[in-house]
Design a protein around this nucleic acid. Structure first.
Length: 556
RNA sequence: GCCCCUGUAGCUCAGCCUGGAUAGAGCAUUAGCCUUCUAAGCUAAGGGUCGCAGGUUCAAAUCCUGUCGGGGGCACCA
């Protein structure tokens, strides 16, 4: 709104100089200055220099002179070098923003984009073989945050977890006789059997035999597979549940085994199916987006013995998902990029749309200067549950009540994952991750708790009074941060990337710390106004953290 | 060989999409601040050829091309 006023003022002034620009063009050129001292909006005059053959700083001065009256929305309009800087009336801004926050409360920041729309999100979908490590958890944490963002924007979201029960990993565990084991013992068993299989070709063959038996519906084998899968899924669900990550539906790959023929028949109609010299059925993907991304653009659908491969089940599953919602989102590791591209092309051939996909990179374990990939197979991992437990233990030592530790631990874990953009490899160092100072989850909670502490000490004043003497720079920064929140949420939504919200939360908390340090609330001249600022801060930070899956604490 | 991601301070990252005013944080280091709302905090200092080389532009960390380093992927694993 204020930006539009800036454009209008400029448009008039420019016209007097016989420079006719459309409002839209001016809007595109308006910038936000790097610091509030330079104003709230800026108009750079460089582009006029070549046209007018003048120094851009002089041009700025001249345009400024053409602006006679400063409208009430603005405090001042100044030039600084080649920039014309606009200072909005901060009082108005403060009043507008604070009113909106305190009215909309938990809804402040939502644009309600998803109202009346159904969304299906699939995330996590870890191999059900053992306790998830931090690398795997990145999927779940990003996925869960996206679900929260979507719900916040008004979508009706269903969260699905796809269980790859038709898998070599389960077969390995079955071979190792793990069906009676508890979840806690699975990892050890898995590491052991992995090592054994690596050494023995015979054992490896046994694994494939088991898998084939399961695929063909052998009752004894199925029973064992189901037992192992069920133990693992329940175990993983419990651990992720501790982080506040929950699922509406678990879909099992094995239920799609009998859909293979049907999918093949449908693909057959496209004429792009062929059998190669070894008897495999293959989908030709020439002239699709995967061309040039792989040696030969195709997708192998069956083994030479005609049994279906994973992609067939995946296609069947995705077709089902697409029918269940207005739109679909899936979170996958970067290693699945090309594969998912292939699946999407297959779906296109079948006349179906395909899910929007969010990819994320690995988490590397970094110890000193060494960096290595986490491997469940080798047992070379930081387990999510261990990490969380360490974080909670550390929090217990520092907080006023032990019961706060869980929330603080979760905040530390989730935030450290979410603050990085998804396509970046995270160098994970447990010691750094357990640091609760600076750019961390606990710091965010701390700033919230301090805000709450102020309000506890002040007599409740229900009247909203927006009167104050003069705004301090720290107050202005804080208010401007509040005003940014809805745009940040929108950006996160548009890019399916929670890291914007994570980084915003930190900057918001920092702005509050700065305010806290410099602007006493109690017994200050502007006490009533500052109380409203503190209240607004709590609300905005709470909303922001909620999207990251972090609960707030009133004290810690 | 081809495709995708990535390279910014000693370390971990933001900024890049949408080019502009002195490149920002945190950790670590050094020096300060608790008889006033929680010091998990704040202030200050040192620390940068934004991988490298070209190009576009009045202006490039940001856009384009090339190149080097790291990661991922490219036919019966899931």
């Amino acid at each position: 709104m204020q930006k539009e006023s800036v454009a209008e003022i400029l448009s008039k002034a420019l016209a007097k100089k016989k420079i006719n620009l459309k409002i839209q063009e001016i809007l595109e050129r308006i910038e936000i200055p790097p610091s509030s001292e330079m104003g709230d909006f800026a108009f750079p005059c460089f582009f006029l220099a070549s046209k007018l053959k003048r120094n851009p700083a002089d041009i700025a001065l001249e345009i400024r002179e053409e602006i006679e009256k400063i409208p009430p929305e603005f405090q001042d309009i100044q030039t600084k070098g080649p920039y014309i800087n606009f200072f909005v009336n901060r009082g108005n801004l403060a009043a507008d923003v604070i009113k909106e926050i305190l009215e909309k409360k938990d809804n402040f920041g939502s644009k309600g984009i998803g109202k009346g729309k159904k969304m299906l999100v699939e995330h996590t979908s870890i191999n059900p073989n053992a306790s998830p490590h931090v690398g795997r958890a990145r999927n779940a944490i990003i996925g869960d945050s996206l679900v929260r963002i979507l719900k916040f924007q008004g979508f009706n979201v269903d969260t699905h977890y796809y269980v790859n029960d038709v898998s070599k990993q389960i077969a390995m565990l079955v071979l190792a006789g793990a069906e009676k084991l508890k979840f806690e013992s699975m990892l050890k068993k898995y590491v052991k059997i992995s090592a054994e299989i690596k050494k023995s070709k015979k054992k490896e063959q046994q694994v494939f035999d088991l898998l084939e038996k399961f695929e063909s519906g052998d009752k004894e084998t199925t029973k064992k597979f189901n037992k192992v899968t069920s133990t693992c899924v329940k175990g993983q669900e419990k651990i992720l549940g501790k982080l506040g990550i929950n699922y509406d539906v678990f879909d099992y790959e094995s239920t799609y085994l009998n859909r293979s023929k049907e999918i093949l028949a449908q693909l057959e109609k496209s004429g792009k199916l062929f059998q190669d010299e070894e008897g495999r059925i293959v989908l030709d993907l020439k002239n699709t987006s995967v061309e040039g991304k792989m040696r030969t653009p195709l997708l192998v659908l069956t083994r030479s013995n005609a049994t279906g491969l994973y992609p067939l089940r995946d296609i069947a599953y995705t077709l089902d998902k697409m029918k269940k919602a207005d739109s679909n989102l899936i979170v996958l590791g970067e290693d699945q990029k090309l594969y998912f591209n292939q699946i999407s092309e297959a779906l296109k051939i079948l006349g179906s749309d395909f899910p929007k996909v969010v990819h994320y990179s690995y988490i590397l374990l970094s110890e000193g200067k060494k960096k290595k990939k986490m491997s469940t197979r080798k047992g070379d991992v930081v387990l999510l549950e261990d990490f969380l437990e360490d974080a909670i233990k550390k929090a217990e030592k520092k907080s006023k009540k032990k019961s706060y530790a869980k929330t603080i631990g979760i905040a530390a874990v989730r935030y450290v994952i979410l603050k990085n953009s998804a396509d970046k490899i995270i160098n994970f160092n447990l010691d750094d991750a357990l640091n609760f100072e600076g750019d961390t989850g606990p710091y965010l909670l701390y700033s919230y708790a301090r805000a709450s502490s102020i309000l506890r000490k002040i007599k409740e004043n229900k009247k909203i009074e927006l009167k104050y003497d003069e705004l301090e720079p720290q107050e202005i920064e804080l208010i401007k941060k509040f005003a940014e929140f809805p745009e940040i949420v929108l950006k996160s939504y548009n890019n399916s990337d929670p890291s914007y919200i994570a980084n915003y939360s930190y900057k918001l908390a920092q702005a509050f710390s700065d305010f806290y340090q410099n602007c006493p609330v109690m017994k200050s001249k502007n006490e009533k106004f500052r109380i409203l600022l503190v209240k607004s801060f709590r609300q905005v930070l709470k909303n922001s953290l909620n999207l990251l899956g972090i609960d707030v604490l009133e004290e810690m």
